[in-house]
Design a protein around this nucleic acid. Structure first.
Length: 426
RNA sequence: GGAGAGAUGGCCGAGUGGUCGAAGGCGCACCCCUGCUAAGGGUGUAAGGGUCAAAAGCCCUUCGAGGGUUCGAAUCCCUCUCUCUCCGCCA
């Protein structure tokens, strides 16, 4: 959510910034709505003030034993007027809320111009793609003989699910454990176990609702609950409706959770393999920081995600997403892309974003700024550190051998009971 | 799943229809007193929103949430959520 004061005082500036994303802010409609809201609210406040004063006067008159019938009559009138004024206010307010909640975040000045992913800016590269003396397979072919079973998953759940067996299941677990250990013991994160089912309010806080409901899995039943699309939702919402002391910041959290996405808009994309699934695991990093520190924190968080790839010795590159490709709630995002020999290209494996105060305002997550003495929104950041399923894909493809076996990266061997090579089963 | 109790400010806790945003205490901040320590006295101490260029001021909202009764609701009625206790079941 944008700062409503800024939206009102610098509407043109906001519109210019949002235009970089390709988002057209309708200035005329906004001005009209705002004008209407102002009038209706002033009128409702006025009526309520008079109603309160009248009611108080009734009490005093009765206390003194005076006749209050004129006041009672006026009170009745006011209650009627106030009722309609309030419903008018609620209507305008609801309209304004939907409007404001649908606006994406402002972009940081450093975000490159551009309309789609082709304009993303490569910031740096690490590692060199290995040259193969044989034609590398993609993970789906390779994995089939190692225990990657899409057919079984289809029978159980349908398309876009995977079953992992044996060594592959363990490799998957090893990756998650390795990442958690790295972030908790070397990068200073607190590990979090959080709910996988969350309320609509939590999703509104991090920005998935109201706009992106079609990407979520909602539960049937009386309770309005959704499966989390990322641990960002429960973990960032840890600070919702809180006023934090400056000493509590920064907070750094890491959580390993499954993520559930309906990917409604991605039909036909990446249908092969386990690149795009309805369910996948991710190790997520979240920072809650003072506003002045958030861009330093973004660099730091990104470097923590990169460290995972470095230790796994996987070649990757870092992209600064361009204006048109950046996510709804983010002011600036770096994507990490890992090299996949099977596809012969770099593919997204992590996305690290500074949401500034966008989510904090929606969640009412604040800190007490000692300089002003006032509660002010914190800044929130999140990033994958990293996607477990895609990391496994990258390991399989980059570490494959001519005979269809896969060498276990050195960093993972302690988590695999010392196993050095995953071999195809019979 | 069954039975019961509860939800008030940073915390504890009073308040069952009127001048209550809410007594009292604790905590915290500042000041005074006391040559240290201990004790004492005073003042202040919520969040959100509107108006305003901004501040001050003024106004509105908020006593778990939503609805209702009433001129007026922390207080009465209904629904829901959450917490606690006991029983049952359960990983």
């Amino acid at each position: 959510m944008l700062d409503s004061k800024l939206l009102r005082t610098d509407t043109a500036g906001v519109a210019r910034n949002l235009a970089r994303r390709g988002f057209a802010l309708d200035l005329v409609a906004f001005a009209a709505l705002e004008e209407r809201r102002k009038q209706v609210q002033i009128e409702a406040d006025r009526l309520r003030a008079e109603r309160n004063a009248t009611a108080k006067a009734v009490g005093m008159a009765k206390g003194k034993g005076e006749d209050a019938s004129a006041l009672l009559k006026r009170g009745e009138e006011l209650t009627g007027l106030l009722g309609s004024a309030e419903s008018a206010l609620n209507a305008v307010q609801a309209e304004a809320d939907v409007w404001v909640l649908g606006l994406p975040n402002l972009l940081d000045a450093s975000v490159p111009e551009g309309r789609d992913e082709s304009a993303n800016l490569e910031v740096r590269r690490h590692g060199t793609p290995r040259s193969f003396e044989f034609t590398p397979l993609d993970h789906a072919d390779l994995g089939q003989r190692l225990g990657l079973d899409f057919e079984a998953a289809a029978r159980i759940s349908g398309a876009r699910f995977a079953v992992l067996r044996g060594g592959l299941a363990r490799l998957h677990r090893a990756l998650a454990q390795f990442m958690l250990d790295l972030h908790t013991s070397e990068h200073g994160y607190q590990e979090i176990y959080a709910p996988y089912l969350v309320s609509a309010a939590a999703l509104e806080g991090t920005g998935q609702l109201p706009k992106f409901e079609q990407d979520l899995f909602a539960l049937k039943g009386e309770r309005e609950l959704y499966l989390i699309p990322t641990a960002e939702v429960p973990v960032t919402n840890l600070v919702r409706e809180q006023i934090l002391a400056p000493e509590q910041l920064p907070m750094r959290y890491v959580a390993h959770t499954p993520c559930f996405r309906s990917e409604a808009g991605a039909a036909g994309k990446d249908t092969r393999g386990m690149i795009r699934q309805h369910q996948f695991d991710k190790v997520e990093l979240v920072h809650i920081v003072k506003p002045a520190d958030s861009y330093a924190a973004l660099e730091q968080l990104t470097s923590h995600a990169e460290e995972v790839l470095k230790r796994l010795e996987l070649p990757y590159r870092v992209l600064a997403l361009c204006a048109g490709d950046i996510g709804f709630g983010s002011a600036k995002t770096y994507d990490l892309e890992v090299w996949l020999p099977g596809q012969g290209k770099y593919r997204e494996i992590s996305s690290c974003s500074n949401c500034e105060a966008f989510q904090a305002r929606r969640m009412q997550a604040r800190w007490r700024n000692p300089e002003t003495g006032k509660p002010e929104p914190v800044h929130t950041l999140n990033g994958s550190g990293i996607a477990v399923g895609r990391a496994m894909v990258a390991v399989l493809e980059n570490y494959q051998n001519a005979d269809g076996s896969v060498t276990v990266p050195a960093a993972l061997r302690p988590y695999m009971g010392g196993l050095e090579v995953l071999r195809p089963g019979p």
